[in-house]
């Protein structure tokens, strides 16, 4: 199947080929500069309030950089920055479904089996916030306020992304509009394949350290394919069975350990995509 979609054979949208877009984030490279967060906010028209910039509980981030520490004192102290987009969980085993998708009562969020992207339909969501309760990564955020931008900034909004109204949930979409754009381009050039460099998320491109790699996890020609298999690769909270499509790599053992509460059981029972 992989080969088939490479050669572009038999790939028709909606009829077969499965992509699984995902990320590999190298935590050894991340400096915590926050460029990915800023790029994401600009790309996706995320509203912000000056009053809330320090209140991480009501401010909306699609990409959020966490600072984690090994808790040691000098000279053994070490810190690590961990960028956290939506994991676009696939679910597996007897949790064969994305945690947030199955719970949504109005089908306002969906797992796309062609791209592996978990979508969010803002005009369908009625703000019950059940999906937020279901997501263990605090990925989903709610529009507590009416969206507002500083005077004049509305002019700079991205026309490809619809701004959200208050009272709905939003989250990282892996810049899905960029995939649509790339697909349109490919289509106009009579191609069925979207090249790796044609579809990259805003955070990937913004990262000055090159810590984020994005691509199709099932395509051996994409960088993420090999990267996710490196021995230092892990995912957040693997033991829960959410089967995320965002991988992290770190050469530091404590960082790998810190990714899963259930120390000692890291990586067990996980099927790699």
């Amino acid at each position: 199947m992989k080969d088939a979609h490479h050669k572009g054979e038999g790939h028709q949208e909606g009829h077969g080929t499965v992509y699984k877009y995902g990320m590999v984030i190298n935590l050894d490279k991340c400096t915590g500069c926050g460029a990915c967060m800023v790029a994401c906010m600009a790309e996706n028209n995320i509203p912000f309030r000056k009053e809330d910039t320090n209140d991480r509980l009501t401010q909306n981030f699609w990409m959020r950089v966490y600072k984690i520490s090994n808790g040691g004192s000098f000279p053994d102290n070490d810190i690590c920055y961990l960028p956290r987009p939506c994991m676009h969980c696939e679910g597996h085993g007897h949790h064969n479904r994305t945690p947030c998708v199955t719970v949504c009562p109005a089908v306002a969020t969906d797992y796309n089996h062609e791209t592996g992207i978990v979508s969010q339909i803002y005009t369908r969501c009625f703000g019950c916030r059940y999906c937020m309760a279901a997501c263990p990564y605090h990925v989903r955020v709610f529009n507590w306020w009416d969206p507002k931008w500083p005077e004049g900034m509305e002019e700079y909004l991205n026309p490809d992304v619809s701004p959200r109204m208050r009272g709905v949930v939003e989250k990282c979409s892996f810049c899905f509009h960029r995939l649509q754009r790339a697909r349109n381009k490919a289509y106009s050039e009579d191609r069925r394949e979207v090249h790796e460099d044609e579809y990259q998320t805003a955070c990937t491109q913004a990262c000055p350290a090159g810590a984020i790699t994005f691509g199709d996890l099932t395509n051996p020609e994409h960088k993420v394919y090999e990267l996710k298999k490196t021995p230092n690769a892990f995912r957040l909270l693997e033991v829960l069975g959410t089967n995320p499509k965002v991988y992290y790599t770190s050469s530091r053992a404590w960082v790998r350990k810190a990714a899963d509460v259930y120390v000692g059981k890291e990586g067990s029972g996980v099927t790699h995509t």
């Binding site: 306002a108 969501c125 009625f126 019950c128 109204m165």
Partner: peptide
Amino acid sequence: IGQPIRGWF
């Protein structure tokens, strides 16, 4: 709910 008018969804 955040959007009561859409409750019927």
